[in-house]
Simulated assay, not measured.
Amino acid sequence: MRRAVCPGSFDPITNGHLDIIARASRLYDEVYVTVMINKSKQGLFTVEERIALIEQVTRDFGNVRVEAFHGLLVDYCKQHDIPAIVKGLRAVSDFDYELQMAQMNNGLSGVETLFIPTSPTYSFLSSSLVKEVVQWGGDVSHLVPGPVLTALQGKVSRP
């Protein structure tokens, strides 16, 4: 069974994330979408809400599992016998940081990182940007799945 993990904070999941997950799900038998918990960051959505949204929007893939994890990603990979991390790259600036992480993860555990270039449609997209645009009343309906848009509108109070 070929397994990979797509890690992130997913606060919230965007169409860019979904594109990478969908592409990974075609390459691997099982894809674990792992909500990485950072106790020092206060997210807009709770971890449970993020998991529920991701499960809802990835349900049709059939080979995606969604979980949360607090700790080193390589420890998660060891626990689940996952040899590969799949990451999307939006720009060259992402590559510098992600390459360091990939080399560290490989050095710690032998886990490989595969980079998938983000679709040009989503090359500018981030969860932070989506939250900011929604807060100011902007339309992000083309940037997030429907259930996420509904959840965002229920969470964000506009000035």
Rank of each mutant, 00 (worst) to 15 (best):
M1S: 08
R2L: 02
R2S: 11
R3W: 01
R3H: 08
C6W: 08
C6E: 11
P7T: 09
G8V: 06
D11Q: 08
D11R: 01
N15R: 04
G16R: 08
G16Y: 06
H17W: 00
I20T: 02
A22V: 00
A22F: 00
R23W: 01
A24E: 01
S25N: 10
L27C: 14
E30N: 01
E30G: 00
V31D: 06
V35S: 08
V35M: 05
V35R: 03
N38Y: 03
K39A: 09
S40Q: 06
K41N: 08
Q42I: 08
F45Y: 07
T46W: 13
V47Q: 01
V47L: 03
E49L: 10
R50H: 10
R50T: 02
A52L: 14
L53R: 07
L53F: 04
I54Y: 05
I54A: 05
V57D: 02
T58I: 10
R59F: 12
R59V: 07
F61L: 15
F61I: 05
F61G: 06
G62S: 10
G62A: 14
N63P: 02
V64L: 09
V66M: 03
V66R: 01
A68D: 09
A68N: 09
F69K: 06
F69Y: 15
L72T: 11
L73M: 14
V74G: 10
V74D: 09
D75E: 15
C77S: 12
C77M: 13
Q79C: 03
H80Y: 11
H80M: 14
D81R: 12
I82S: 03
I85L: 10
I85F: 04
K87Q: 06
G88A: 04
G88Y: 00
R90G: 06
A91D: 10
S93N: 14
F95L: 15
Y97P: 04
E98P: 10
L99I: 10
Q100A: 13
Q100P: 03
M101T: 08
Q103T: 15
Q103C: 14
M104G: 09
G107I: 01
G107L: 04
S109V: 00
S109E: 01
G110V: 05
E112P: 01
E112V: 12
E112I: 03
T113M: 03
T113E: 09
F115P: 00
I116P: 07
P117C: 07
P117M: 13
P117F: 02
T118I: 13
T118K: 01
S119F: 12
S119N: 15
Y122K: 02
Y122I: 02
Y122T: 05
S123C: 08
F124E: 12
F124D: 14
S127F: 00
S127R: 00
S128K: 01
S128Q: 03
V130R: 01
E132R: 13
E132Y: 09
E132P: 07
V134R: 07
G137R: 13
G137T: 11
G137W: 12
V140T: 08
S141D: 12
H142K: 13
P145E: 11
G146S: 12
G146L: 11
V148F: 02
V148R: 02
L149E: 01
T150G: 02
L152N: 05
Q153R: 15
Q153K: 14
Q153A: 03
Q153F: 00
G154W: 04
K155T: 02
R158E: 10
R158Y: 13
R158N: 15
P159Q: 15
